[in-house]
Design a protein around this nucleic acid. Structure first.
Lengths: 195, 195, 195, 195
DNA sequence: CATGAATGAGTCTTCATTCAT
DNA sequence: GATGAATGAAGACTCATTCAT
């Protein structure tokens, strides 16, 4: 009789949006943005094509929303790695990266595919540059605290290595010695005497 | 209107093919594979759409041919870096990578976009895995000759760093301190006492 | 939360209906029937899409209701122009037309757009033909009373001119010399000696 | 073996374009621009949907092309009505209009529907205003030569009547006394003593 | 060897309409 | 009486591919 309450509608909407975003993430990760059709996403999300346009004004907007969502989660993670001991913080930082790679492989694939299309989406470039700079600064500071020589250069190498490892894992999958590399990286940079 | 000789035909063929491949490389690098249409390539190459199907049975086939072409060139390069001094070989290897990044930026962009779509093209995966393994083996051997501890692990880190540096350069472009990283990498691994 | 009384409901109904019709008229006039969506109308009227279907079984039905509403108003107007002096009646008739054109421009735009789609809506054609015939008959009678020769033919010309002036005003807007034409028309047909 | 000659291609293209324009004119006239789909046009023209985009970059462009085509034809017509005797020229002008209305009814319907959507297409407004002004100027000059008083005002009335007659014919079709009105108009303005 | 007209399947997007609440 | 989430059919447009010449 009476219309649905605001809360009911909110719930319904959020559920649909979540379904759509989840489906989109998975499909974008597996097939890539261009090769994923709105119809694909709608089907996987269990909604109609039309509904998608109630929540996202288009495919690009959907992508942006997805990225925003991932971004929020990431902020939380970064604040969780801080420790008084810089060695420990750095270790947490590395471990977090490898854990994410293993547990949320799909997100990583999604992001790396996105970065490969960086020229197509301005907001991706800005986001990526910001991320990179923050990462370099953090690692440099940690390395300096630990007592490394050339902390900035080492941070650049590490940032490169971290990214590269991700890409190679993406390529080689289970053939990539992820654990071995993880352990070595930690041993080298977090367990050293002073270097 | 005497018929063209076989040699003339051969020449025309090769010129057309080269035009097409060159146009395709550039467009794939700039716009990506999916967003580049056959019409785009034909126009840039100065040939008709129809002609493309004389030489390549389809868009995928064209991609494969392009990759093969790049691959051949690469073999030549690898043989040029060998030196009796492993330190020198490693340095050549690094320098070659950075030089390629600078001089043939487009190829690198093309390849990284391709790798991001690795699941879409089986032949890309195989090629990439092969490359990776060869690279690791080479670097590991060199590091061992030079006298590094954990040569395999270091090779893995280096391979990661090299790849990651490429991706970050792609992202940051002129903002990336390419020369600085290059010099540091060489200093660290090729100019050391023994490590 | 006592239930609303019948009168209250009636009032609410009528207010909603009036809102919807008003919004529809404006949007149909500005954007045209096809380019106006139900969502547009609902938003402008401040009601939900669903509610519209309580009152009108569909978009076409809404159009028909709108037309009916306009039609009622028009009947009243026609009865207000009658005068014992046919010259005066004709003048009233002309003045009313120009006044409507100026004051209710939107209605005129709406109607002319509708007539342009006459084949799409059967009820529009019937209505329009009826209007035309009545108009011709009235003007013919007046002209005969005034003493014009060929009153029927003149009525046809006048009917054409009246319509055409409307369309041209629609086209040229403020560039059209509406007042000038109005005055001339009245001078020519209502102020003459006998013609 | 050899590709089609330029002339062959030209012929093929022109035939397709003509088919498309013809089909579009008919459908736009009958169903209106908005209610005619590209698929409708393609089917009627006997070509594929895709082909339309080889020749027209979109539906709007097709409309513009159609209008241009009609416009060209019209220029020829206008130059054919001129005569040394202004009475004769005016008569030709009237007769041409009625002839067009009868023989190319479809064009007229098309144009009047277009004018009703004048706000939607900028180029339509400009075209229409230009036409109107030229027409008024011509008729005014003729009336002045013939010796009418108030030639400008009469020209305005005539222009209105001409347009209005067209719209009413469009509405009433065979019920409209086209011939009768035509004859009266000519008698009144071209056969008079002096007015 | 070479062309480009033509096709049609597939894509994104819009919107009238339904219906559970 | 009222809401707005959801649907699905339909429309504009793109593009890899075919084929007559």
């Amino acid at each position: 009789m009476s219309p649905r309450s605001k809360e009911q509608n909110e719930k319904i909407r959020n559920a649909s949006i979540a379904n759509i975003l989840e489906a989109a993430l998975e499909l974008f990760a597996v097939k890539g943005f261009d090769s994923t059709s709105i119809a694909n996403i709608a089907e996987k999300a269990g909604v109609s094509k039309g509904l998608m346009y109630n929540y996202f004004s288009g495919k690009d907007e959907l992508l942006k929303a997805l990225l925003d969502q991932l971004n929020e989660g990431e902020s939380d993670m970064m604040s969780s790695i801080m420790d008084n001991d810089p060695r420990k913080t750095l270790e947490n930082c590395f471990r977090l990266f490898f854990k994410e790679l293993r547990d949320n492989y799909q997100r990583w694939v999604f992001i790396s595919k996105l970065v490969a299309q960086i020229d197509k989406f301005d907001f991706v470039r800005e986001l990526a540059i910001g991320k990179y700079n923050n990462y370099i600064l953090l690692v440099e500071k940690l390395l300096r605290s630990i007592g490394f020589e050339h902390p900035k250069n080492e941070a650049q190498l590490i940032a490169g290595a971290i990214d590269g490892i991700g890409y190679q894992y993406l390529m080689l999958k289970e053939k990539y010695p992820l654990k071995e590399v993880e352990n070595y990286l930690i041993k080298k940079y977090c367990r050293n005497e002073n270097s």
